[in-house]
């Protein structure tokens, strides 16, 4: 079974978020990037299948500029077998559907039997791409998956619903599974893994290589971000000021007023 994992490299969760010059995204120079947290669980889920002997090959795929190599190397260091890096200026700023078309083209070219992705990205919080990739491939899909149980022809997944309830769904293979954060214990790349990763192949591809230059570039976007900004403050909290003792004193007074002391 050939397993593909879709990875996004996103600004580090603690990175400074300054709006860029044209006001349409954040300023990305000189900030730290990392693998999208949801995607790390997707990589782990794929590697578990490899450990169990049911995945022959785990391929990690990412779209983005040169910096994305680092995210792919990290995933290779964790144990993925090889990487595909779609590095093409025409793919910069693609909307979700164009991005999904690129990923679907890679999955088709590779003949993936199973595609994993994270439920959402920490930067755009969109939860858009995985079901789109599934639709384009004609695969059944499930999102927000916290547990998987594989058999020969299908996989039984548990989807997280509201209030801690779970929905169990059986998906025939080939299929796509979008993993919820916390689904498993993500391994670290070991030193040995990192050394081995240096020898593992990272294929760099353009949109033309994948046959989607005319259908999946940013020029085909149907959805555009016009502006991003710090949200206007609503009824914001009364901020206490003073020394630690003064602040704590005010909190104790408030707790007394609430009748809790």
């Amino acid at each position: 079974m050939k397993v593909m994992v879709c990875l996004k490299q996103v600004p580090h969760q603690d990175a400074r978020l300054d709006v860029n010059g044209d006001g349409t995204w954040i300023q990305e120079d000189n900030i730290k990037f990392e693998i999208n947290s949801y995607d790390t669980y997707a990589v782990e889920e794929a590697l578990k299948l490899k450990d169990a002997g049911s995945a022959d090959e785990v391929i990690v795929v990412s779209i983005g500029p040169d910096r994305v190599t680092q995210a792919l190397r990290t995933a290779l260091g964790m144990g993925a077998d090889r990487a595909i890096h779609v590095n093409d200026d025409a793919a910069a700023g693609t909307d979700a559907l164009a991005t999904a078309k690129i990923l679907a083209a890679v999955a088709k070219e590779e003949g993936a039997d199973l595609v994993f992705a994270g439920l959402m990205a920490d930067d755009d919080n969109a939860s858009a791409i995985p079901p789109m990739v599934a639709e384009l491939l004609g695969f059944p899909s499930a999102t927000g998956v916290v547990a998987t149980d594989f058999s020969d022809a299908s996989v039984k997944v548990e989807r997280e619903l509201e209030g801690g309830a779970l929905e169990v769904v059986d998906l025939p293979k080939p299929c796509l599974i979008a993993i919820q954060s916390g689904a498993n214990q993500v391994r670290y790349a070991s030193l040995k893994g990192i050394m081995q990763a240096k020898k593992k192949p990272v294929d760099v591809k353009t949109l033309a290589d994948l046959g989607v230059a005319d259908s999946a570039s940013a020029a085909q976007n149907k959805t555009t971000i016009n502006k991003i900004y710090v949200p206007p403050k609503g009824d914001t909290a009364e901020i206490l000021s003073g020394s630690t003792d003064e602040v704590v004193g005010q909190l104790v007074t408030k707790i007394k007023e609430l009748g809790l002391l």
């Binding site: 999904a100 939860s127 995985p130 079901p131 789109m132 899909s141």
Partner: peptide, 24 residues
Amino acid sequence: ANTPTGWDVAPRIAAGLDCAFTSD
């Protein structure tokens, strides 16, 4: 609605209709 049902199905509709999509 952007519920577990909504985020599971909505992007598939957009891909199936080859149309614009935005969420939440």
